[in-house]
Write a protein that binds this DNA or RNA. Structure first.
Length: 119
RNA sequence: AAAGUCGGCCGGGCAGCCGCUGUGUUAUCGCAAGAUAGCAGGGAGGAAAGUCCGGGCUCCACUGGGCAGGGUGCCAGGUAACGCCUGGGAGGCGCGAGCCUACGGAAAGUGCCACAGAAAAGAUACCGCCUUCUCCCUUGGGAUUAGGUAAGGGUGAAAUGGUGCGGUAAGAGCGCACCGCGCAACUGGCAACAGGGGCGGCACGGUAAACCCCGCCCGGAGCAAGAUCAAAUAGAGGAACAGACGCGUGGCCCGCGCGGUUCCUGGGUAGAUUGCUUGAGCGUUAGGGUGACUUAACGCCUAGAUGAAUGGCUGCUCUCGACAGAACCCGGCUUAUAGGCCGACUUUUUCU
């Protein structure tokens, strides 16, 4: 366990509107009752993560922040599962009623599924 | 001790590991801008919320005033300002500490006042009461004519002052006393208002969160404001150079039209930077003020993100943790909130 493997610097994030657009245009999808993930293969040599938590789904800012943290944390701690993809995570309503452990498990499955399907 | 009133404060704690984001500093790389790494130190709230008021700041508009529209509304003070706060007055609630109030004007005008009731606004008075005319009838009483009344009854949220005494045919502010109301002075108070006395003798029902009238206040938009830099693409104007070039027109030349290169100006999209945190700031002490607040000295720097940081895991511990996440910044208001702490005061009970 070295620190370098679990960092989350800015270059691993999707930032620009154009980058999000590219993912939404022609993605590989993976979804369950908590999340919908969209992914596209990139040429950067590392994965990149973007979050899209709709205000409509989660009204309170506290809830939105909490979900973003959970997703980022999972992304950061499991780089070995994730191939070089641009991924956008969309949250669903059921996230609010879920246990933290269930969310983590769900996210791990998504990382592996997307990595094996986008080749 | 119990019940209660008011004001203030806190919003799990500690340790380790892994992350995120500013700041300072050191090292390495780089012409530089900067990048990477190490170390140190900072990193959500009392409401950050609702966006309901008030201001700062920015851009636009602007001579001043009026109309319209909106806001506000006992008085005085505080403040940058306010619809906020403080103190005072008035009315209401509570045994009390205390709490509540959209609290200007109904004699400028208009409207409305359901149901019930005779009548809902300057009374053609329903049941009545009293006097009187005529008739019936055994005194008593009944029917009826003309008039005087508003005490009693009944309706209503509200009925044209209230209670008592006098007075009267019966009654009535008709007269008197007290209360209430109105008027002009006086006294106290900056004022709202209060006080006691005088005069009037009932005239003036309620409703202005109904229109309205009166006093005071208000230009509009908002940090996605605004400022700077500025690709690609589109492409405006000017100047200089070349005018020996190409294309079109034409049989050819001249000419005319479209093209060239360089520079300057302009435009400002994607994007980037900035605005962005030192401020009507906080703390302590001293002075002024009943208080809100204010003055002075000294000390402190306390989030600044931009797909948007302030978190995750583990261990220990307690009373097992609510409402909830900064987005330009302040002052308020309102709403949400587990649990806990402190102070002042009130009422009741017990003990000494």
């Amino acid at each position: 366990m070295t620190g370098a493997n679990h960092a989350f610097p800015p270059n691993l994030r999707l930032k620009k509107a154009a980058e999000f657009k590219a993912v939404f245009a022609n993605p590989v999808k993976s979804s369950d009752r908590y999340f919908t993930l969209l992914a596209v293969r990139n040429a950067h040599g590392h994965p990149r993560l973007g979050l899209a938590i709709a205000k409509k789904v989660m009204k309170r800012a506290v809830d939105r922040n909490a979900i973003k943290r959970t997703v980022r944390e999972s992304f950061r701690l499991h780089p070995e599962m994730i191939a070089d993809l641009d991924i956008v995570v969309l949250a669903k309503k059921d996230v609010l009623s879920a246990e933290p452990a269930q969310l983590k498990e769900s996210l791990c499955k998504h990382w592996q599924r997307l990595s094996s399907r986008c080749v």
